[in-house]
């Protein structure tokens, strides 16, 4: 797959919940391999539904979606785990397992895909080194700061070298300094070849990063600009 290939392609995608709410309407979007995309919009604009749709958590009611070669609109449930291995996910609230140390939290991603013990050790060490937490392997999540916990979550999402990293409000619980650190880390992952999609409210970060910005309002894409800014 070369850099001009669409890794994510949505054509006329709509999502209507059982309650009748139309969360996404006629979305057309293409994201190429290696891109860094911000998705911005006010609360209830449909950003979270968009992430859930890419995760295979919500099924599109209309249109076609292809992500990393998987046709999500007609994919069978049993293929979902294998599709999700192509993705890394980072959440606002970190979602680490508090009863397991940092090494175990990151190693879980490797266990799921059946990596051997030796290889897993090597990969987890390397990943923790990359996010700057090599000395905290034995610590537990509650012993770390918010910024450090988000770094662990990024390490867990990235250790299997996914093609796409989805980050849902990754700086929502962090102060500006830590938020910027996390963004630099995501940019570093992007430079290594991973396509990154970040859903955020943080206008300061979006404006400083100068990346592609897709703005969603009332379930529709209202703007899509390269090197854009928040609200432009």
């Amino acid at each position: 797959m070369n850099e001009n290939t669409s890794l994510i392609r949505l054509k006329g995608v709509g999502v209507r919940y059982q309650t009748g709410t139309e969360a996404l309407k006629d979305i057309d979007l293409e994201v190429k391999k290696g891109e860094f995309v911000f998705m911005v919009g006010s609360s209830g604009s449909g950003k979270s539904t968009f992430i859930k749709t890419l995760l295979g958590e919500v099924k599109a009611s209309s249109g076609k979606i292809a992500v990393a070669g998987y046709p999500l609109d007609k994919m069978k449930r049993k293929k979902l785990p294998f599709y999700r291995r192509k993705l890394g996910v980072v959440f606002q609230e970190f979602r680490l397992l508090n009863d397991r140390n940092i090494f175990e939290n990151v190693a879980l991603s490797q266990r799921v895909i059946g990596v051997s013990k030796e290889r897993m050790k090597k990969n987890v060490h390397a990943m923790l080194e990359m996010v700057g937490l090599a000395d905290k392997e034995k610590a537990y999540p509650m012993e770390l700061s918010g910024g450090e916990q988000q770094r662990v979550a990024i390490a867990r999402a990235m250790v299997n070298r996914p093609e796409i990293l989805l980050a849902d409000e990754p700086t929502g619980n962090l102060d500006p300094e830590n938020s910027w650190e996390i963004m630099k880390l995501l940019e570093q992952m992007n430079r290594l070849g991973t396509t990154v999609i970040v859903v955020t409210h943080n206008d300061d970060i979006v404006n400083r990063m100068k990346k592609r910005v897709v703005t969603v309002q009332k379930g529709k894409i209202v703007s899509d600009r390269d090197r854009g800014g928040y609200g432009q």
């Binding site: 785990p81 999700r84 799921v112 895909i113």
Partner: peptide
């Protein structure tokens, strides 16, 4: 929480 995390990272 553990189950949903495992599902997100591709556990069968």
């Amino acid at each position: 929480n553990e189950i949903s995390i495992m599902k997100y990272i591709g556990a069968t």
